[in-house]
C-alpha cells in the first residue's frame, strides 16, 4: 500500500460541484456493466467521463478476473473516456477501499462524470451510497417475489431505480412493487423507477434525464457538499481499516492469537489506545 500516494491524493479537492459522481449497483448479471457502457457512451459525446469498475477478488488467492471492460470495449478508443478496473481487494461493501482516492484523482484530471460500478451486490452491499452523489439500484425481473422490494439494505439506498432487461416477463410486476417502495423516500426526492433494455440502448435517454434531475436537485438543496463530506469520511474509515487489515493479514494467526490481549503484549488495548489518541487530538485541532 503506497501510503505516500494516498496522502497526496487526499489533498486533491473532492468538492467540485460541476462533477457528478454516479454509483451503479445491483445483483450479478443484472446488466450493470452494459448499462454503464451505455451511460458512458452517451455522456462521452459532450463530456469527459471516467468509469471505475469494481469486481470481486478471490478470498483465497487475492487474485481477480476483471471483466467489466469487455462490455465497454467499443469505448476504449474514445479520448473522452477513462476506464479503470478495480478489484475489491477484500472489501465486503461492494467497492474498493481506495475508491474515493481514485475519484479525487479523476475529478482533478477534468472528468465531469464519474461512474462507479460496484461488484454484483446482494442485499447489504450499501457502501456505494456513501460515495456517489446519485445511486442507481439496478433490478431485474423475476429474482424474487415483491417482498424482496420491501427489504432493508440495498433497496433503501436507491436515488433512482432501474429495471433493466425490462423486456422480460415480470417487469410490470417489479415496476409496481418498486413504485410502492419508492414513494416514502428521503428528503423530498421521489425515487423514480426507470425501465431500460441496456443491451439495445432502450430507456437510456430517460435514465440520463433522471440522473441529471437528481444532480440538479442535490445542488439546489445544497446537499452535494454534504455528500462529498460523507465520501471523505468514508475514505478515512475505509483506508484506516484496510491499512490495519492488510498489515494484520501478514502476521501469522498463532502469533496474533497469542498476543491479542495477554499481559506482556496487549495488542487489542494498544490498538484501541492508538485510535482513541488520534480521535482525541482531532477534537483539540477543532
Amino acid at each position: 500500500m503506497d501510503t505516500e500516494a494516498l496522502v497526496q491524493l487526499a489533498r486533491c479537492p473532492l468538492d467540485n460541484p460541476n462533477v457528478h459522481v454516479i454509483g451503479v449497483t445491483g445483483p450479478p448479471g443484472g446488466g450493470k456493466s452494459t448499462l454503464c457502457g451505455q451511460l458512458v457512451q452517451n455522456l462521452a459525446r459532450e463530456h469527459k467521463v471516467a468509469a471505475l469498475l469494481v469486481d470481486p477478488s478471490s478470498p483465497y488467492s487475492g487474485g481477480a478476473i476483471l471483466g467489466d471492460r469487455i462490455r465497454m470495449s467499443a469505448l476504449s478508443a474514445n479520448p473522452n473516456v477513462y476506464i479503470r478496473s478495480l478489484s475489491n481487494r477484500g472489501n465486503t461493501g461492494g467497492v474498493n477501499s481506495t475508491v474515493v482516492s481514485i475519484i479525487r484523482a479523476v475529478m482533478n484530471c477534468g472528468f465531469e462524470y464519474i461512474i462507479v460500478e460496484t461488484v454484483g451486490a446482494g442485499q447489504s452491499e450499501v457502501k456505494i451510497a456513501s460515495i456517489a452523489d446519485t445511486t442507481l439500484v439496478v433490478a431485474v425481473p423475476n429474482l424474487g417475489d415483491d417482498i424482496q422490494a420491501f427489504k432493508s439494505g440495498i433497496m433503501e439506498i436507491a436515488d433512482i431505480f432501474v429495471i433493466n432487461k425490462a423486456d422480460l416477463p415480470g417487469a410490470d410486476v417489479l415496476f409496481a412493487a418498486l413504485r410502492e417502495s419508492a414513494v416514502r423516500h428521503k428528503d423530498g426526492w421521489l425515487t423514480p423507477v426507470c425501465q431500460t433494455v441496456a443491451v439495445e440502448g432502450r430507456g437510456i435517454d430517460s435514465l440520463l434525464d433522471y440522473i441529471r434531475a437528481h444532480g440538479d436537485w442535490l445542488r439546489r438543496q445544497g446537499r452535494l457538499t454534504e455528500k462529498r463530506k460523507q465520501a471523505a469520511k468514508f475514505e478515512i474509515l475505509e483506508l484506516s481499516s484496510y491499512y490495519l487489515q492488510s498489515h494484520l493479514d501478514q502476521v501469522p494467526a498463532d502469533v496474533l492469537a497469542a498476543n491479542l490481549a495477554n499481559k506482556d503484549f496487549n495488542m487489542l488495548q494498544r490498538l484501541l489506545d492508538a485510535y482513541r489518541e488520534i480521535v482525541n487530538s482531532l477534537s483539540e485541532v477543532n
Binding site: S57, S58, S61, G62, G63, A64, I65, L66, G67, R69, I70, S73, S76, S85, S87
Partner: peptide, 12 residues
Amino acid sequence: LRDAGMEVIYTG
C-alpha cells in the same frame, strides 16, 4: 494468473 493472486483484466 488469478489463482496465483494476480489481478487480470480481460479485454474480450
